[in-house]
Simulated scan of single mutants.
Amino acid sequence: MELPIIQIGNSKGFRLSKTLIEKYNIKDKVELILEKGYIVLKPISQPRKGWEKAFKEMNEKGDDQLLFNDVFEDENLEEWN
């Protein structure tokens, strides 16, 4: 695919089509990798972004309790020794 280089302020750059952005799930940022004479653009994925804040809020509200016991009454833990 051939892309024209365009002027962007004092810099130069190129535009990616909406189709490419959607196909490769590009959101706000990409990682630029220089590799053996090639430039690779890699989408930055943060699937757990915001989880730490959400878990902290859940804890403060007391909404982070187990829904069921993590050890069952009939569980034989000795087999793991």
Results as ranks from 00 to 15, higher is better:
E2R: 10
L3Q: 08
L3N: 03
L3F: 09
L3Y: 11
P4L: 08
P4T: 05
I6D: 06
Q7D: 14
I8Q: 11
I8T: 01
I8S: 08
I8K: 08
G9R: 01
N10K: 13
S11L: 08
K12Q: 14
K12H: 14
G13M: 01
G13W: 02
F14M: 05
F14Q: 06
R15W: 03
L16Y: 01
L16S: 01
L16C: 02
S17H: 04
T19N: 08
T19M: 07
L20V: 04
I21A: 10
K23E: 13
Y24N: 11
N25Y: 00
N25H: 08
N25T: 07
K27H: 11
D28F: 00
E31C: 05
E31D: 09
E31Y: 05
E31W: 00
L32R: 01
L32D: 00
I33H: 08
L34I: 07
E35L: 10
E35P: 02
K36M: 09
G37H: 06
G37S: 09
G37E: 02
Y38G: 06
I39R: 03
I39V: 14
I39N: 04
V40H: 10
V40Q: 11
L41M: 06
L41A: 06
L41G: 07
L41W: 02
L41I: 07
P43L: 05
P43K: 03
I44H: 03
S45P: 00
S45D: 11
S45Q: 13
Q46N: 13
P47Q: 07
P47N: 04
R48F: 14
K49R: 12
K49A: 15
G50F: 06
G50C: 03
G50M: 03
W51V: 13
K53E: 15
K53D: 15
K53A: 14
K53R: 12
A54P: 02
F55R: 13
F55P: 02
K56Y: 05
E57F: 05
E57G: 09
E57Q: 09
M58D: 03
N59M: 15
N59I: 14
N59S: 13
N59W: 10
E60D: 15
E60G: 06
K61Y: 01
K61V: 00
G62P: 03
G62L: 03
G62E: 01
D63P: 00
D64M: 13
D64K: 12
D64Y: 10
D64F: 13
Q65P: 01
Q65V: 12
L66A: 13
L67R: 11
L67I: 14
F68C: 00
N69M: 01
N69Y: 04
D70S: 14
D70C: 14
D70E: 09
V71K: 05
V71T: 06
V71M: 07
V71S: 04
V71H: 07
E73N: 10
E73P: 01
E73S: 07
D74W: 01
E75V: 05
E75D: 12
L77G: 02
L77E: 07
L77T: 10
L77M: 09
L77D: 03
E78K: 15
E78C: 11
E78Q: 15
W80N: 15
N81S: 12
N81D: 15
N81F: 12
